[in-house]
Simulated scan of single mutants.
Amino acid sequence: MPAVGYGPGMTVLPRAFAWQRTDIAGGEFVTLDDRRGLRAKGVTFAADNALYTCRYELHADESWASTRLEVTVEGAGWLRTLRMERAAGRWRVTTSEVGDLEKVLPTAPLPGIEEPDRLHSVLDLDLYNSPLTNTLPVRRLGLLQAEQGTKAQVEAAWVLLPSLAVLPLEQSYEVLGPRLVRYRSENFAADLELTGDGYVAEYPGLASLA
């Protein structure tokens, strides 16, 4: 799979957001069109468990269900790519690798997922430490308009960085008040402050909207 491209012929997208990481050196910048579902192109970088940069393109349909993700992650001496596409209710996952991430990060799992059928119920993609992808279930489930106390359970495809391993992950969202939802996954929880159209303004311990 070729690296995510931004060359001639690419559509100019009308909106942009940037988040600054508050836990480590890093950030995320994304341009997007959310008038009919979502089309987004983003760049992240982090001095996390390995120093890397990530370029991605993400699509969701008019119901805000995820349909496609292409990711390229690159560090010193290595590069990995991932492509996920949902069609007829099934996910197709392909990967490639150049160099050897394991030399930098010996614990890094292989990219992708051995059994894509484990993702059969997944409608949301969750890119590791990306505030943008929290918007997908918020918009898909109508949580901005929901009453306080509303809870929703989802199963997301969690895309780890920098490995690009894909894991099914149970998540929940609870409406705490206007523009405030509690995100939970396993033993983790965070109260997310949202903008008026559902993007993360403040993710405690992770990132703030610039």
Results as ranks from 00 to 15, higher is better:
residue 109 P to V: 11
residue 147 E to H: 10
residue 143 L to M: 05
residue 142 G to C: 09
residue 131 P to N: 10
residue 69 L to I: 07
residue 85 E to V: 10
residue 136 L to E: 02
residue 141 L to P: 05
residue 135 T to G: 12
residue 74 E to Y: 02
residue 123 L to G: 01
residue 78 W to N: 01
residue 70 E to K: 03
residue 66 S to G: 10
residue 136 L to A: 06
residue 113 I to E: 13
residue 97 E to N: 03
residue 84 M to A: 07
residue 123 L to M: 07
residue 136 L to T: 05
residue 92 R to V: 14
residue 134 N to P: 01
residue 114 E to K: 10
residue 91 W to G: 15
residue 66 S to A: 14
residue 80 R to T: 02
residue 117 D to S: 15
residue 65 A to Q: 06
residue 138 V to P: 02
residue 97 E to A: 11
residue 105 L to M: 13
residue 146 A to T: 00
residue 120 H to K: 12
residue 148 Q to H: 05
residue 71 V to D: 10
residue 146 A to L: 11
residue 110 L to T: 00
residue 120 H to G: 11
residue 114 E to H: 04
residue 86 R to Q: 15
residue 99 G to Q: 05
residue 110 L to V: 01
residue 86 R to G: 05
residue 82 L to N: 14
residue 64 W to A: 02
residue 115 E to A: 14
residue 66 S to H: 02
residue 87 A to N: 12
residue 122 V to G: 02
residue 100 D to K: 15
residue 73 V to A: 11
residue 123 L to N: 08
residue 85 E to M: 07
residue 141 L to F: 04
residue 76 A to Y: 13
residue 90 R to A: 15
residue 126 D to I: 11
residue 106 P to W: 01
residue 117 D to R: 13
residue 136 L to I: 14
residue 119 L to Y: 13
residue 110 L to N: 04
residue 134 N to H: 07
residue 89 G to M: 15
residue 138 V to R: 03
residue 136 L to Q: 06
residue 134 N to Y: 03
residue 137 P to V: 03
residue 143 L to H: 11
residue 112 G to Q: 10
residue 130 S to F: 04
residue 133 T to Y: 11
residue 146 A to H: 12
residue 120 H to C: 10
residue 73 V to I: 13
residue 148 Q to D: 11
residue 70 E to I: 00
residue 117 D to F: 09
residue 84 M to K: 07
residue 120 H to Q: 09
residue 79 L to F: 03
residue 74 E to W: 01
residue 101 L to C: 06
residue 133 T to M: 12
residue 92 R to G: 04
residue 75 G to I: 06
residue 64 W to N: 05
residue 125 L to P: 08
residue 117 D to G: 14
residue 70 E to L: 03
residue 145 Q to R: 15
residue 115 E to W: 00
residue 132 L to Y: 02
residue 83 R to K: 09
residue 140 R to G: 01
residue 147 E to I: 00
residue 119 L to D: 14
residue 126 D to V: 13
residue 114 E to D: 15
residue 68 R to Y: 08
residue 81 T to M: 06
residue 75 G to M: 09
residue 82 L to Q: 13
residue 127 L to Y: 10
residue 81 T to D: 03
residue 126 D to L: 08
residue 109 P to L: 05
residue 67 T to G: 05
residue 98 V to I: 09
residue 144 L to D: 07
residue 122 V to A: 01
residue 122 V to L: 01
residue 140 R to T: 00
residue 138 V to G: 06
residue 92 R to Q: 13
residue 95 T to C: 04
